[in-house]
């Protein structure tokens, strides 16, 4: 056999093997199992090499021709992330408001005689000598000076001291000008919760004119007495943090820690109407 004829046979045989293997691969695992099992391992490196080459070409193609599309897609995704973040913020705000309203609902259910108006704090005083803040009003609510201001849980925050068409100034309970008729909840002792400069600097107020100091202990709850009709009865002012006896032994008083977290308030509720108790 001549060399030329021999090479023709070899090429033919090689072609047959390639064709058989292609057919067997195309037929899948169900058909031509023998050819598949025999030839697949032999072609695996070639396949891997081809896949690598094709992937490489695809990457180059993507870089060259799909770059603009990727940029566009990236911008779109960024916008979508921003939208989702906005939605999340909105959701958080709604969730917070929902929680506040839920607490308020519980409080309002107990005190059906109260007419409440919600208000958002828009600014705090710059003074180091007084404690007050400004709330916005929608212009339709009838808020007037002297109205009590509370949190959603019913803790006393302060009192409206001045009102304009769109805002009102609230003086907080720790301000040195405050005087509130109070009651020690546990003992029923009447006293006066008042602002005091030393206590004010610690974010507290003072409970003075206590009839029977023995009954007043640290942790006792102080509520409004409702006497005089300036404040509704039973609003929680705070808890007694310390009973102070001066060196002279006269004028014993207690320090009150306000229950409302005055420094971290953002929303408050104004009691515009309530039934005065006897």
């Amino acid at each position: 056999m001549s060399f030329k004829k021999k090479s023709t046979y070899i090429v033919l045989a090689a072609l047959v093997i390639v064709l058989v293997s292609i057919v067997s691969i195309a037929a899948g695992s169900s058909g031509s199992d023998l050819a598949n099992r025999t030839l697949s391992p032999a072609f695996a490196p070639l396949r891997r090499a081809m896949t690598t080459v094709v992937d490489g070409f695809e990457r180059v193609y993507n870089l060259a021709y799909r770059y603009d599309r990727l940029v566009e897609e990236n911008e779109e995704l960024k916008a979508r992330v921003a939208r989702l973040e906005d939605d999340y913020r909105e959701y958080s705000e709604i969730s917070e408001e929902n929680e506040r309203l839920h607490k308020l609902l519980g409080f309002a259910t107990k005190h059906t005689d109260y007419t409440l108006t919600s208000a958002t704090i828009i600014s705090w005083t710059s003074s180091n000598w007084a404690s007050s803040f400004t709330v916005n009003l929608d212009g339709e609510t009838e808020v007037s000076p002297g109205d009590s201001v509370i949190t959603e849980t019913g803790y006393l925050v302060g009192r409206v001291t001045s009102v304009s068409s769109m805002s009102a100034t609230v003086t907080t309970i720790i301000d040195t000008t405050m005087n509130i008729g109070a009651l020690v909840y546990e003992t029923g002792e009447t006293a006066v919760a008042e602002g005091d400069f030393d206590a004010f600097q610690d974010g507290q107020m003072r409970l003075s004119y206590i009839q029977n100091i023995e009954g007043v202990m640290t942790g006792c709850t102080v509520v409004t007495s409702g006497k005089g009709g300036a404040y509704p009865k039973g609003l929680v002012i705070g808890t007694v943090s310390e009973v102070v006896t001066p060196a002279s032994g006269l004028g014993v008083y207690a320090r009150i820690n306000p229950s409302a977290d005055i420094d971290n308030l953002s929303h408050v509720y104004i009691i515009t109407e309530f039934e005065v108790s006897d």
Partner: peptide, 9 residues
């Protein structure tokens, strides 16, 4: 403005 910022009438 200072009086306004002090919430003082």
């Amino acid at each position: 403005l200072c009086d306004v910022s002090m919430n003082s009438p």
